[in-house]
Design a protein around this nucleic acid. Sequence first.
DNA 1: TTGAAAGCGCTAACAG
DNA 2: CTGTTAGCGCTTTCAA
Lengths: 336, 336
Amino acid sequence: MAFENYTIKDIAKALNLSPSTVSRALRDSYEISAETKKLVMAYAEKINYRANPIARSLKERKSYSIGIIVSEIANNFFSQVIDGIESVAYGKNYQVVISQTHESAERERLNVEHLYSRSTDGLLMALSAETSDVSYLQDLMAKGFPIVFFDRVPATIPAHRVIADNKQGGYDAVHYLAQKGCTRIAHLTSARGLSISKERLEGYKMGLLAHGLEVDDALVKHCQYGGLHQGELEQVVAELAETDYDGIFISGDKLTTGYLQVMNEQYDERIKQVAIAGFTNSKVVSIFSPTITAIRQPAFDMGKRAAELLIQQIEAKHTVVDFETVVLPTTLLAKK
Amino acid sequence: MAFENYTIKDIAKALNLSPSTVSRALRDSYEISAETKKLVMAYAEKINYRANPIARSLKERKSYSIGIIVSEIANNFFSQVIDGIESVAYGKNYQVVISQTHESAERERLNVEHLYSRSTDGLLMALSAETSDVSYLQDLMAKGFPIVFFDRVPATIPAHRVIADNKQGGYDAVHYLAQKGCTRIAHLTSARGLSISKERLEGYKMGLLAHGLEVDDALVKHCQYGGLHQGELEQVVAELAETDYDGIFISGDKLTTGYLQVMNEQYDERIKQVAIAGFTNSKVVSIFSPTITAIRQPAFDMGKRAAELLIQQIEAKHTVVDFETVVLPTTLLAKK
DNA sequence: TTGAAAGCGCTAACAG
DNA sequence: CTGTTAGCGCTTTCAA
């Protein structure tokens, strides 16, 4: 009988107390005598009482659930972030609801609205590749709905953000490739508008500069949908193949594996001549062929930090005005 | 102003109607005149009214949310199943709550209890590798709580199940390897107790038999935690390395990639002599080294079917007694 | 066809 | 320290 559906009234009746007393006792209120508390607790324990979270939510205007919006859960980076988020949410008794945009701005908006109207207490989100208008998010925040951004963050909205040091990561990647002797280093990245694209591109340019290499726009390729849509990746890989690049820095999990796939299938000779470094949190890079150098983001930690900030904001007495931007270091995992 | 918090009362007041009339109009009740309905709908639309799902839940004793329990979302197979589940849940207006067991029976139980007491309307689950006692699940179902199992299903509980044709998949894998000339085919699999382990083992044996090969227990290795725990995989791979196996059939995503990793790191000569076929839904098998043959499960479809069965069961007027077992075909993706 | 009223299970102001 | 009461937003008898 591990699962029954008793209510506070049942306990009150059984113990000859009022429902409010039981409620207070269960919540360990200072107003209740130690004796009564013990009595109530013991009985609740005995019948395996579980408070009805829905009733509580209705009363408290709080659902104890938070929403996560990412482009794909089938992405190593995001699934690791989610693990991090869950680890803190679970400890603080928040339920977590995940939804995916598949890089569509429209689905993002639908998901936000859905999660908001379904009474989640706040949102953790990484913007979709397609997103340009974030004003509705700002409206929501202005109404007091907490949103914490991670990874792909909006430029303009005042909010907590948790990101990796993308610029440094990009720099490190290029530095590594240059050291290995590459002189024509290409860059394959996601949508122009994304914060991560901009930051990593900046790091890329810095890296080139530091090694006396020039920036050639023909070597910088964007995929509007992060390589998620059929064809866009093949297109830019084909364009790159026309150039004389000898190294490439790739910005993101999907792009990195996608690039390898296309190259293996269509350019199996050419690929041997290029050194590859990419942002990826895949746990199986060591079995990839050709071997690559991985730039890792501290995904789990990022999720933890973001969740902590969100819950803190949710539980804050007053509107948060003092927003934080947490920047976490990347690490470079050189190919063996 | 896309997001306001109006209630049914606000509409009633504005339109000089009673809350009950508004409620009925919004739900398109037959009792309400077409005129009133139109009036209410239009106004609701105008102010962007959203019903408070929590209040509705409390009243209806239904949360419009379903729980998913899997071992890891960072597993290609499971994340694809989840996509399938979400695709139907979304369409039927159910929220989806995901939780992970990390192959621990204890966490599984905690998650079940958590989801149950948080008023999800039903559960979709694949058992953890460690699970042996499922009686509490049966108790829950006996109380009328709907649970649909997929992939890793319990032997004894009467319930809807959605699985792949694991036996056939195992057979196909072995058949493929034998055709390629392997005569000493090993089998690397997960916990003994799991339904998928048993079924795939059976297929493996059938395959050997069909090719006149004998079953050698020394070539069959189990990982209690599906290769999730440090060391267990290295251990069995080492044991296998002592034998003269020339082909291997691996049962599962994590084990397949894990096997490749260990072999690449520790047995890079030996690995060239073995042909590999494994259950994996990874989308990047084509960049694995060495190349392998993949047995694919129709994960997305599995999720869809399971979700449909669950929602059907949730919304059924009476207790379901007529349980279905859906078996979906696997496909073999030969290495190039 | 509409309205009044009760109640889902819980919390909290107010009273005692 | 404990009880009474009202109410969160919604659905749903029952009555008009």
